[in-house]
Structures are given as C-alpha cells and as structure tokens.
Design a protein around this nucleic acid. Structure first.
Lengths: 248, 248
DNA sequence: GGTCGCACTTGATCTGTGTCAAAGCCCGGA
DNA sequence: TCCGGGCTTTGACACAGATCAAGTGCGACC
C-alpha cells in the first residue's frame, strides 16, 4: 500500500540496506501514514497533455506507471524536451504556483498526487522530505547537465547512441532485463519525441538509427524494440568517457 | 559579518520582507552562529582550476566575489559549460564524495567554504538549510532547462542574444545599473567561454556578435563591454517568449 | 480482405555552422 | 619604443544536419 510514493520518503538511515526498495520504519512511520492519507490518483491516456505551461498547479505528484515528458516550445513551434519522467520521478515544484513546462503523457500514465498546500506544510514539518527531495533534485540537475553536454557538443550519431544507452540503463536498473551478453530495450518514444529529446529532426534520428543498425551497433526487432549486442561498443559510439551515462 | 553566506540560510518566514537581504533573526540565530564558526575562505586567480572532475571534494562553498564555471569535457577535447557561478551561487553537492565537473575561476574568485562533513551534519539538524538548498537547486534546474532549449533549438544568433540577455538580467538584478533606456553590461567571458556556454565555436560567436552590432541590437565599447539600446529588441532576437529568461 | 492513416524510411538538395587560415588589435614586458 | 603573445575578427571553403519531397510498411477499422 505504500509502494507508490515510497521513493519520496526513503533516505539513507543505515537500517535500510536497499535504498530504492526499503523505507525505514523506525524514522518515518508517522510521516508515511500522514502522506498515505493525503494521496490520490490521476490517470492520463497516451498523448494527453497533463499540464500546459502557465497552468495553475495545485498539486505535486510522482509517476507510478508510464512515461511523461517535460517540453518547452518557442513561439514558432520549435520544441525541446527538457525532462523525461519515468516511474518514481517527481513532478511539480513546491513553492511555485504555475507550471513552467508542458507535461505530456507519452504512454498511458498513472500519477500519485498530493495537493500542494498540505504537501508543503508537511515538508515544513518533516525535514526528511525536503532532504529526500533535495537529493532527487540534485540527481535531476546532474542528468540535465549531462544532457546539456549532449545537446551542445555531440554529433547526431553520438546523440542517438547516448539516448539508447540512457534508456537502456534506466530500464535495466528498473527491470534487470539483462540477458546474457545482449540487452533488449524498447524505445518508449516516437522518432519525433527522440528528435525533441536530442535537438534533431526526426529525419536525422531515423537516418542515424539506420546507420547504427547497418554498422551492427544495434539490431531492430520491429520499429520500437532494439537489442544491443555489445553495450561497451554502444558507449563508445556515445562518445562518453568510461561509463558514460547519468552520474548516479 | 554574516554577509557571505546569508543567502544560504535565508528563507521566507514572513518577518523578513526583503528576501535577498535579510536573514530572519528570530528563527535562525543559532544556526547562523554555528555556521559562522565553521566558515573559511579560499581565493583563486583568474584562469585557475578550482577542482578537476573526479577530485575528492571535502568542502561545499558559495561564491563571494568573481565568476566561476562548471564544464564537462569529452575525450577528444570538446567542451561544454554546464554551469555559470556568480556571487551567491552554491558549489558542491552534499552527499557526494567526488566532483562531477571541472570548476574553473574565470575571474579572480573568492569562495566562502564549509567542510563537507560538519555541513552535512548541520543540514541534518536544521531543516531550514535543506529547504533553502532545495529552493536554490530547483532554480538551477530551471536555468539548466532553459539552457537546454537554447542548446537544442536556437540558432547561433538567438544563442548570442539570449546569453547577453541572461547576463544583463543577472547583472542588473545584482547591481541595478539600468540607465534611462540603454543598459550597460560587461561580458565577463572570453569569446571561447561564450562558445563553450552556447555550444558554438568561438569564430561563430565572434561573427554573430559582429552581426548584432551591425544590425544595431547592441553597441560595443571595447571588446568586453556592450550597451543595449533596446532590451525588448534584444529579447525578440533571443527568440524567447514574453520575458524570455530564467524563470525565477 | 481492402484501404486508410500514421509512423517511419530514404533520397535530393540547401544552408548554417564548423574548420582552417590569415591578419588585426591591444596590453604588458623588455 | 618595440616586440610578443593572447584574444578577436574576418575570409574561403567544407560538411553535418535541416528541409522538402516521395515512398514504404504496418496496424486499425470498416
């Protein structure tokens, strides 16, 4: 019953060995119960816009299942994705009244929500929540900076390889779907969404995926599902140093 | 005597009308005094590297005077700036042992430092610090996302205009150097640093600055100092919507 | 089973920015 | 005063990726 938002409260307290699974019963029971009473759910269909820039935001939430994106748009329609929300990611900013980005459901999405005001009050009372939120925000900031390097300095081929590596890594850490040697990943994004992630056009995305396939770096099973025969080879193509992904 | 790190502890408590100047005496006196005892200074010369990626980080700090940058580098030397640290900005990540980025002093820099361990302990005891740090980190995340839009989707000309607008805005909010109509700004960065900020080459930066000058969007007084006759015109060139800068 | 529509691929061409190279400017030191 | 070196500007050219335009494949719906 606590599963949906436990990532919000978890913290390193020494008692909880497995950080991403356990919630420390000793310290957080009261807060957990209070939070439990506050939560409610919202679900959205694939393609649906969850909030528009400038909308009044009266809630904060975390993604339970599905994938959502944060995007920014220039007046003439150029779009850049600035956040990719996977299960357990947090949406919304305590202390801000209106949304700064468009939030869109890429697949069907279930969110676990908390009304903003009581959540903020609670944050003021229970230091663990602010500390946990700080930790999550710092992780996001690191991811954003890695992303900036990608956008500013990588070639189209490196961008595609990086994106596949990022998805594979986040995916693998959730699902442990690592077969012997080869790794199966499915891309939860359309070519256009990948383009918006990478600062490219969809044509370029398509061409570079074809090129990586031609060169044996990836194999395609259908259009959205790929296998990676050699992950290190992929990382090499991504141009990163050593382990080349989001610092975690 | 408290001036150097007061931004770290300030918060909205109702008593302090002017957020960026006042520290609420009622709530924070003890913490301020403890923090005061812990602080020490380091200074760096222009061009000097403050920390290298992977270095052990035994302190956190905030910039008192001068400008520093965070950069990431690919193996073949391509560089991308991922953070620009102006006075009052925070450096270092509580809970992380090694630096994730190169930190370099662009001008002479004075930093107000705290040893990491005691700072972390203090953070655990005094919720205000974590909350304040969260607020600052969320601001940085917003800035990073604006930056991602710039890197992924703006043209070279728009990038330059945006950078000038960003510097002018941060500068103006600190110094209130807004003359009637025209606005004088000096660029604290070399052409190469601007290029690293914007994901361009220094030649392109130079060409676009010349173009903006030719078109009357900016005027140059020497190489590093510009005046902006019409700020709205500049924002238009930057391609942003409405007020087009870092959301604050 | 056919056909409609949408996501994707592929091709031809165009263009903005990178690359390479040279020259100018300015400041500091001898 | 002149010289040297770093920062900057400018030019000529190359090329990665954008743009425009067909075409393909595949699932949904009749």
């Amino acid at each position: 019953m606590l599963q949906d938002h436990q990532t919000l409260l978890q913290h390193d307290c020494g008692d909880c060995a497995i950080r991403h699974r356990a919630v420390c019963a000793r310290c957080d029971t009261d807060e957990l119960l209070r939070l439990e009473q506050m939560k409610y759910y919202r679900s959205y269909q694939a393609g649906q816009t969850i909030v528009w820039v400038g909308d009044r935001m009266d809630f904060v939430a975390s993604v339970v299942t599905g994938i959502a994106t944060l995007t920014q748009t220039l007046e003439d329609g150029r779009r850049q994705m600035v956040g990719l929300l996977l299960p357990s990611d947090f949406v919304g900013r305590p202390g801000r009244a209106t949304a700064a980005y468009d939030v869109t459901a890429t697949t069907d999405v279930l969110m676990c929500c908390f009304r903003k005001r009581p959540f903020e009050d609670m944050m003021a009372r229970t230091p663990h929540i602010a500390q946990r939120l700080l930790e999550m925000t710092l992780d996001e900031l690191d991811a954003a900076r890695e992303w900036m390097l990608l956008l500013g300095r990588k070639t189209a081929r490196e961008k595609i390889a990086s994106l596949i590596a990022i998805i594979a890594r986040r995916d693998a850490s959730l699902n442990l779907r690592r077969a012997a040697g080869a790794l199966a990943v499915d891309l939860p994004l359309t070519r256009e969404e990948m383009a918006d992630y990478l600062g490219l056009t969809l044509e370029t995305v398509s061409r570079q995926i074809s090129a990586l396939k031609r060169d044996g770096v990836i194999r395609l099973d259908g259009k959205r599902s790929i296998t990676i025969p050699d992950f290190d080879r992929l990382l090499e193509e991504a141009g990163d140093d050593a382990d080349g992904g989001l610092p975690v």
